[in-house]
C-alpha cells in the first residue's frame, strides 16, 4: 500500500506491504541504515526513531502508521557537516564504544531533553530504561546526555537571541 509521510523533513511516499515494519522500511527501502535492529523484540532500543517528535521503537511499528506523520531518524539530525548538539556530546564525552546502540541512545536522549530540558542523572538513567548498551556501562552515555542537554539549551538560547 502507498504510504505518504515526512522523513527527515522531506515528503516521501513508499509503496510497501502493510506488514512492513518501519525499521525494515528505513533500512531496506529508504537506504537509511543508521537505524539499527538489535533484538527485534522491542527491548534493546537500537531502533528508536522520533515519530512526530516522540521516541518510538521502529521494529515494533507498522509502516501504515506513518501516513501523514513526520519521522526523524539519526540521519535527519545533522545540518550538513554540523552534528546535532546531542551527537556532538556523544562524540566529545566518549558516549559510545562499538556504536551499535548509539543511534537509539541519541534519539531517546533528544526526546528526553525536549520533555525535560535539565534532567537529573536519575532521570536520564530512568529515561534510558528502554535502551541497552553492552559495551560502556552507561556512565559516559549519561555524561554525554547531560552535556548534550546543556548544549541543546545553549543553542536554543543562541537561536532566540
Amino acid at each position: 500500500m502507498p504510504i505518504s509521510f515526512t522523513l527527515n523533513g522531506r515528503s516521501r511516499t513508499a509503496d510497501v506491504p502493510s506488514s512492513t515494519l518501519v525499521s525494515d522500511l528505513l533500512r531496506d527501502h529508504m537506504n537509511l541504515t543508521g537505524t539499527h535492529v538489535g533484538c527485534d523484540t522491542s527491548q534493546c532500543g537500537a531502533c528508536v526513531v522520533l515519530l512526530d517528535g516522540e521516541a518510538v521503537k521502529s521494529c515494533t511499528l507498522l509502516a501504515p502508521v506513518l501516513a501523514g506523520r513526520s519521522l526523524t531518524t539519526i540521519e535527519g539530525l545533522a545540518k550538513g557537516e554540523k552534528l546535532h548538539p546531542m551527537q556532538e556530546a556523544f562524540h566529545t564525552q566518549h558516549g559510545l564504544q562499538c556504536g551499535f546502540c548509539t543511534p537509539g541512545m541519541v534519539m531517546t536522549a533528544i526526546d528526553l531533553v525536549n520533555h525535560n530540558p535539565v534532567p537529573t542523572e536519575a532521570e536520564i538513567r530512568e529515561g534510558l530504561e528502554g535502551n541497552i548498551c553492552r559495551c560502556t556501562g552507561y556512565q559516559n552515555i549519561v555524561k554525554a546526555i547531560q552535556a548534550g542537554a546543556a548544549a541543546m539549551a545553549a543553542s536554543t538560547t543562541a537561536a532566540a537571541a
Binding site: 532500543g45 528508536v48 516522540e54 521516541a55 518510538v56 511499528l61 531517546t108 529515561g127 530504561e129 528502554g130
Partner: peptide, 9 residues
C-alpha cells in the same frame, strides 16, 4: 509501564 518508547505507543 515498559519504557518511554513503549509508553508512547
Amino acid at each position: 509501564i515498559g519504557d518511554p518508547a513503549v509508553r508512547h505507543r
